[in-house]
Design a protein around this nucleic acid. Structure first.
Lengths: 340, 340
DNA sequence: TTGAAAGCGCTAACAT
DNA sequence: ATGTTAGCGCTTTCAA
């Protein structure tokens, strides 16, 4: 049910002017005396006039609508932050988001993108929930598109991802500053960009602080609490155990807490722990609270829309194409100096 | 950039028929011989024709678009499941979702709803992330709207919420079946429908199993891990401590695990724990895994869209207006028989 | 069985 | 300074 009663011609009639004048008055076009403009605006408000975006979109070839395509929106708590960042930035441009989700089904994803294009979206955010390399569906070649938490070999698309390497350095550095010299790393067994970037960041940071790089302090496991628990356990069993653990993500960090409990070690007095993700639900609920490096989900959503806006308006020539966003440290209570 | 190249008239030209015939062929209207219909369809496919929904929406007064209005999409992991349920059901009706989020700001919410209406959405899902009573913004009176995880005194709106009382009964019953007779309840300090419903369910279930209802076993706290931890601690300190804890939500259950650790009790051997929510991230990561009652987020999303569809098509007369959805038990490993 | 044409609500080029 | 009018792409009545 479209309940748009009053249209531009009703306003015109009520104000005793033509539709052109109304259109100009409301959209700032044309050259009118302030007086008429004001008067028309007042009449429009009184009548409760609201423009029909379907009609103006049809006329302007601009729907003021952006397609947001993502994978697995349901299983991650990241999606909310990304969508929120995108939605708030979109609202600032008077855009509204059409959200679709493919649940990792490429065929479904194509259908959804097709639907979005039928709705004449002005552009598309192609988002993944975990930083990854993607091959962009070919039909996106004809529409302004920016990649979010994803990168493509196809250089045509602008993209934004977290700076994984710097995130890891931030975490390790924090531990080093606290006085730790034997810092274990619980890494992810999956070979994805995040894994590579964070591992590199760990190694670089250790080295750049003049600490010995002991590869046996790096343990590989599934990026889950269970994975982190087992990995941490294997490290804590050793005679000369690390005094701090840097974990690929907050879930593995949660596993490290569990391992500490099993090993009878108190966090942070006897074992310091740092994660990555800043999953509020986990990091804020662990006891004591987990110090971790936040992934910039909100900021990526925001950046993607802003970049898309530039692209659609044709002033994207000087805009950066590929961006790695900063990941800030979030301090809670899981780090202390090592025992003497 | 609208990149719709080929329109209905291109197809008409290519097929050597009129636009009318094309329209009828594609949408199944009119009375044409199968032969022409097929031929036109083939030509349309070859040309890569796709209808412009802005145009058909303008003509039909149906945008095939639904507004999804929610509060705090970012802070909860529930949002994803709700949106997914809604989106998949919407796709089945060839609808697409316009998602907006108000972050609890009523003024912002109004602006967003206004934007949705300008885009001529055919209906609106008014969703909350925590079961609550709401006053529906007055402008929704003129558009088909269904409430999700929310109820209103205004009886005009269909609504769907979880069956809180039954959820609690499911949890307690499971504990009783395992042999527990002293079951503590960690309840929420906030007076919201979930709190009332679950507390009632707890009491009803205890009574209906012929167990003594010991009100001192009910402890009130903040619905967080910290709240659950403190509440559980106070219960476990007692001489005749409960052998099982039912928790208002998974976060409080997580706190109960922490309390068990502090008290030196092993879960589930010495203390059984059940939650509500089935937050995969928490319930699946706790060690051992948390047995909990799932909130029907996906199903609510689905129901809301289906109901809205009936409403928009005017065949909602026999449809239920207010529904409480079943909350299924999800078994993991946090429950065992009490020690003899 | 097929086609011409009006019109959904809006914008903007072109008059006046 | 303001108004007339031709579409945007589609559906559908009405006529042929």
């Amino acid at each position: 049910m479209m309940n748009k009663r009053v249209g531009i011609r009703d306003v015109a009639a009520a104000a005793g002017v033509s539709v052109t004048t109304v259109s100009h008055s409301l959209s700032g076009g044309g050259v009118l005396p302030e007086s008429t403009r004001k008067r028309v605006q007042i009449v429009a408000r009184e009548l409760g006039y609201a423009p029909n975006r379907l009609a103006s979109g049809l006329r302007n070839q601009r729907s003021q609508t952006i397609g947001f395509v993502s994978d697995e929106i349901a299983t991650t708590p990241f999606a909310g932050a990304v969508v929120l960042g995108a939605q708030e930035a979109a609202a600032a441009h008077d855009w509204v988001l059409m959200v679709v989700n493919s649940n990792l089904d490429a065929e479904l994803e194509s259908r959804e993108i097709r639907a979005l294009m039928q709705h004449q979206v002005d552009g598309i955010i192609f988002a993944r929930m975990y930083h990854q390399n993607v091959v962009v569906p070919p039909m996106l070649a004809n529409i302004p598109t920016v990649l979010l938490d994803a990168e493509s070999d196809d250089n045509r698309f602008a993209s934004v991802v977290p700076d994984e390497e710097a995130a890891a350095r931030t975490a390790v550095e924090y531990l080093v500053r606290a006085g730790h010299t034997r810092i274990g790393y619980l890494t992810n067994q999956d070979d994805i960009p995040a894994t590579r970037g964070r591992l590199e960041g760990y190694r670089n940071s250790i080295r750049s602080h003049g600490l010995p790089l002991d590869e046996s302090l790096i343990v590989t496991a599934a990026p889950s609490a269970a994975g982190g628990r087992e990995a941490a356990l294997s490290l804590l069993d050793r005679t000369s155990r690390p005094t701090a653990l840097f974990c690929f993500n907050d879930l593995m960090a949660m596993g490290a807490y569990q391992a500490a409990g099993i090993a009878g070690l108190s966090v942070p007095r006897e074992l310091s722990i740092v994660g990555i993700d800043n999953l509020e639900l986990i990091a804020g609920s662990l006891f004591p609270g987990l110090t971790t490096v936040a992934l910039p989900h909100y900021a990526m959503g925001q950046w993607a829309i802003t970049r898309l806006h530039a692209e659609i308006n044709g002033d994207s020539a000087n805009e950066p194409r590929h961006v790695r966003l900063h990941c800030p440290l979030v301090e809670r209570f899981s780090v202390a100096p090592p025992l003497p």
